[in-house]
Design a protein around this nucleic acid. Sequence first.
DNA 1: AACCAGGACGTGA
DNA 2: TCACGTCATGGT
Length: 230
Amino acid sequence: MTTRSLETLYGQLLAAYGPQGWWPLLDHRGANPTRSGALTGYHPGRYDYPRTAEQRFEICVGAILTQNTAWPNVEKALLALQRAGALSLPGLEALGEAELLTCIRPSGYYRAKARKLREWSRFCRLTGEATPSREALLGVWGIGPETADSIRLYAYGLPEMVVDTYTRRVLAGLGHLPRAAGYDEVKALCIRGLPPDAMVYQEFHALMVEHAKRFYRRGTPADPLRFGDA
DNA sequence: AACCAGGACGTGA
DNA sequence: TCACGTCATGGT
């Protein structure tokens, strides 16, 4: 098992791919895309997002819609919601059920996700501007560990490590994971190996996704970081 | 044309 | 706890 530290791995990935500009936003420059695939929402090197309550809400909605779902599908749903004026708390609450289902259908699991968005809206209305604790988020139906951590890290800028299947896949491939580890165990491993900084956490997570997409998809070459330096 | 994507919940053992 | 089924559309 390699002894390369996570911090070194982080530095290598950052040098190779550069800042990833997560979390993507539809309207971070006042742009108003009407079709999917624009992918204009990344803001590499900027860590002062979200800048508005609407952007924060958009990130939370995206975090829910992207559960086990490819981002382009989520983007379609987000664009539909934006056009319907539903990418805000009052906007989403005012949206009818049929319209909601239509908007988010491209993101898959649309009936379950519609309920999750309703539950999230209710939670937002009840908690107001207060920063939600991890425990409070986990108490919301439809929000599990990764979604809760994504909301805290990307929507609130808190130093909350996010672990997803990509992260697990890369760390397992590099030999950093002793066995089939659970979410909290992998999370603890990542926290142990990196400085407790929200910007680092954001980049690390996004870089792991990028690296996994390049080297941990079936039919892709072996990870060049797997061998070579110890 | 199968396979899978930036998970979470409900159930039974 | 834990393994397994379910939820569902769209891209490769």
